[in-house]
Simulated scan of single mutants.
Amino acid sequence: MILLLLGSVRTHLEASTISPELSDHGHRSPQTQTQRGNKKSLFPMSTAKFQRVVLGKLVDLIEEVKRIGRGVENEGLERQVPTLRNNKELDELEGKLQNAEQRALLVHLLAKVGGKNIKDATNKIMDRLFTNRLMATFNMKGGGHKKKRAFRETEVYAVVKEAVIRSDQSATESAVDRAMADHLKQAPGRSGGGGF
């Protein structure tokens, strides 16, 4: 929108017939006064030309900022969301999540992963955070004959749930819990899951 507006302003300024002798306020421009007095000019170009140059530079700057922003956003998500491979890395992340800013940042980044529905968003977020081998060591409540760790008792559980709910406004806590439980249950059978 801004680019269209600035482009039309640039076109308008190039096509306009502003008198080089008078500025916007009806005063003689410094260049005109110096031409008559043969003095050095404080402003080497007319007001109209100056406006065209400045608006052109502004359009170029806006385009460059947008280009850089797109690249940073795509690269940042990959680098900032860790893929946890073992319980030690999970425990380190759990410690970092005690900081409210770190927690909010991770929720924000994971919500951007998104998905076409609640289950898809949950699966994609969990796959971004964990390897299948690590997920295979969890279930929602813990225990069982394989002595699995309780995912529901981790800080990451709450972060994943919040991210899914933020990414899909129709998501409920119980629907996200079911999707997480199912994804953890299927982890041993997926590539790298280890068959726990």
Results as ranks from 00 to 15, higher is better:
L134K: 09
V59G: 08
G114W: 01
H183V: 01
G192V: 00
R133A: 15
L4V: 09
L13Q: 01
E153H: 07
G144I: 01
E92A: 09
V81P: 09
G193Q: 01
A163C: 05
K112G: 07
V81H: 08
G76D: 13
I165E: 14
L13H: 12
A136T: 02
A175D: 14
K116W: 14
L93M: 08
K146W: 03
S174F: 02
N99P: 00
L110N: 03
L93D: 09
S19R: 03
P30H: 14
G189C: 11
V72S: 09
S46Y: 05
D120L: 03
K148Q: 15
K147R: 03
T131Q: 06
L134R: 01
E64S: 11
L13M: 06
T137C: 00
N132Q: 14
K66S: 07
L84N: 11
A158S: 00
R152M: 11
Q35F: 15
R28P: 08
A15Y: 05
N87K: 13
S167V: 09
R52V: 10
S191M: 05
T154N: 00
S191G: 07
H12G: 13
G142A: 04
I68Y: 13
F138K: 02
D120R: 07
E14C: 10
Q186V: 11
L106Q: 00
H183Y: 03
G192P: 09
R79G: 00
L61T: 13
I18L: 07
E153Y: 03
E162F: 06
K147F: 06
R52K: 01
G26D: 04
L134T: 10
Q80R: 09
E89H: 03
F50W: 01
G95F: 04
D120Q: 05
G189I: 08
R149N: 06
E21A: 04
L4M: 10
V176K: 00
R128Q: 15
R70V: 10
A163S: 15
S23R: 06
